[in-house]
């Protein structure tokens, strides 16, 4: 059988046209937006700290840099119409909590945010939930612990027993504030208490700004004690007791999304091969004995369990 040159060319062109049409149709179909909008779910788990923070000693940490990126992603992504923060954290460093609070506030200014406290939403973790349009706590969760503490660990007694002496030469009286090698002086105690007090004022101000009308017993709220979910509703720290499904449903409602609008879990990217090879994924932070903390004390057992799982 001999086909003419023309029929070979025609056959080729015909097949190319078919493949090109199918490919272009598929490409167009693929580029179409998949849905009118979705709810983004961001998980905040573990102690809040920056990746190299000494606070990771308190248990599994929520890397704030990665969380900030995720919040930013939710803010910039036009398909994300509402955000649910799934919180299970006892709090963390003041700086990390502050950074997250500011980012959540920015996010809440542009789209509905619902905070769901799953197990722990205390101290710094509660602070980051404050700008949310609604705070829902799981029935058996622990909420509150509104306050600041600063921890100074000294081991001068131990050094004495070992016969080790430390000499520090300093330019000013308070230059080695919080030194672990000796007991703090009265002047140092005053400075540290002032710092804690200042940070607490800021925290208190924020609680009153976001939930002022709802707080029924401020002396109880600002005592620093944690509350069960039911008590937290009673004193106005959270809006209601509920489940994650309730939080998602409320986020959809607040954003005007249909009841079956999809939920997209935003997760930080897994460490790349280079990071794994260089060991950055499992780097251990240096031990620094003193730190200003917006967290529950003692840290909940789950934080340690989380750390051992990681």
């Amino acid at each position: 059988m001999r086909l003419s040159e023309r029929s070979l060319v025609a056959m080729s062109l015909g097949l190319i046209a078919v493949i090109a049409s199918a490919t272009l149709l598929l490409a167009t179909f693929r580029e179409a937006p998949p849905a009118p909008g979705c709810v983004a779910l961001i998980e905040v788990r573990g102690t809040l700290s920056y990746s190299q923070s000494p606070l990771s000693l308190l248990g599994g940490t929520a890397d704030v840099d990665k969380l900030l990126k995720l919040l930013d992603e939710a803010l910039k992504d036009d398909h994300v119409k509402a955000v649910v923060l799934r919180i299970n954290s006892p709090g963390g460093s003041a700086a990390a909590s502050e950074a997250l609070y500011l980012k959540v506030r920015e996010l809440a200014a542009s789209k509905p945010v619902v905070a769901f406290i799953e197990e722990y939403g205390t101290s710094g973790a509660y602070m980051l939930a404050l700008p949310a349009h609604e705070i829902i706590a799981a029935n058996s969760s622990i909420v509150g612990s509104v306050g600041v503490y600063m921890m100074v660990i000294t081991y001068s007694g131990l050094l004495d027993k070992l016969g080790i002496r430390v000499y520090v030469f300093k330019s000013g009286e308070l230059k080695d504030l919080g030194s672990p090698f000796r007991e703090p002086t009265e002047a140092e105690r005053r400075v540290l208490e002032e710092m804690v007090s200042e940070m607490f004022s800021l925290f208190k101000e924020r609680v009153l700004m976001h939930r002022g009308n709802m707080i029924t017993n401020s002396s109880e709220v600002f005592s620093g004690r944690p509350f069960t979910a039911a008590e937290a509703v009673r004193i106005g720290l959270v809006d209601k007791v509920g489940t994650l499904e309730d939080a998602i449903a409320d986020a959809r409602r607040l954003a005007g999304l249909p009841e079956d609008a999809p939920v997209r879990v935003l997760k930080p990217p897994k460490p790349g091969l280079l990071q794994l090879l260089l060991g950055q994924a499992s780097s251990t932070p240096p031990l620094i004995p003193s730190y200003e903390v917006l967290a529950m004390w003692p840290p909940p057992l789950t934080a340690y369990l989380q750390a051992s799982r990681d």
């Binding site: 070979l8 056959m11 080729s12 097949l15 190319i16 493949i19 090109a20 490919t23």
Partner: peptide, 14 residues
């Protein structure tokens, strides 16, 4: 992608 496919189609027909 289309150019590669076109070249392959011509070869296939040949």
């Amino acid at each position: 992608l289309l150019l590669l496919a076109s070249a392959n189609v011509i070869e296939g027909v040949a």
